[in-house]
């Protein structure tokens, strides 16, 4: 892509990428073989590529700082951007399977960093299949928060195994979440909302947050307001169903 073409995709007034140039399919098959690069293990994740402000050179290993928030299926990145200023010292990553969407988020973050010097240095995005490669990115107990906002509902029973919240995948999420870490889920599909709640409820390593805790958590409010998908639901006056659970030690 030449420079003039590249500039066309950015808005003249804000300098942010324009979504119309990143039109993507609404769905992607998580079961298909992936051909994008995947780090061999969490120690192979190149932090300098994602967070150049915190990791200036690729050779230097700053082991003190690790990614602590993961937005699984981050879509156009609305939540990441809201969280970035709310938790300016926490490294977070969005994981998205659709390559065009990932490109958009990448450009969006770069543009935000340019427009707001010193800000948005703690967020990044990666194109990957999180259902397959979560253990390649995060060590045991590394994460504090995981987000699953408006995931693909996969209505057919035949396709339930494509759902990003499932009893078996929760085992892996429990592995990468530290004890006390929180998993946030929200959807506008009632059936999926019930499914996600049931999966979390029946898992021996998760417990629901109390009403009080939910109210005290500033992140909960962002679930329905920060993402593009959430705003769309709100515009249409739709209902949302959320389930927020904490990782516990198994008895």
């Amino acid at each position: 892509m030449s420079e003039t073409e590249l500039n066309l995709t950015l808005s003249k007034s804000t300098g942010l990428p324009r979504k119309r140039f990143y039109r993507a399919r609404a769905h992607s098959n998580p079961l298909s073989d992936s051909h994008f690069p995947v780090p061999t293990s969490p120690s192979h994740v190149d932090y300098s590529l994602h967070y150049p402000h915190y990791f200036p050179s690729s050779g230097q290993i700053n082991s003190s700082k690790k990614i602590q928030f993961a937005d699984i299926g981050c879509g156009f990145g609305g939540l990441l951007i809201s969280l970035s200023t709310l938790f300016p010292e926490t490294l977070m990553i969005g994981m998205e399977l659709r390559d065009k969407v990932t490109e958009y988020v990448k450009e969006r973050i770069l543009a935000l960093r340019l427009a707001n010097p010193g800000q948005y240095q703690n967020i990044s995005v990666v194109r990957t299949n999180s259902m397959k490669y979560i253990p390649n990115y995060f060590e045991k107990g590394q994460l504090l928060k995981m987000f699953f906002l408006f995931p693909d509902p996969h209505f057919k029973e035949k396709n339930h195994r494509r759902r990003v919240i499932s009893p078996h995948l929760l085992d892996e999420y429990a592995y990468v979440l530290g004890v006390g870490g929180i998993i946030y889920t929200i959807t506008d599909v009632e059936e999926l909302g019930e499914w996600m709640r049931a999966c979390l409820e029946n898992h021996p390593m998760f417990e629901a947050l109390t009403e009080k805790e939910l109210e005290a958590d500033p992140v909960v409010k962002l679930l329905s307001s920060a993402t593009e998908e959430g705003q769309k639901v709100a515009r249409n006056g739709g209902l949302t169903f959320q389930a927020v659970y904490r990782r516990t030690t198994p008895s």
Partner: peptide, 24 residues
């Protein structure tokens, strides 16, 4: 994947001890 073999395996093995990653 290294999983703790539970006392009651019929309820599933949910606790992952580790992943051994390095093969290409």
């Amino acid at each position: 994947r290294v999983t703790i073999f539970p006392k009651s395996p019929l309820d599933g093995a949910h606790e992952i001890q580790s992943f051994c990653l390095g093969h290409t």
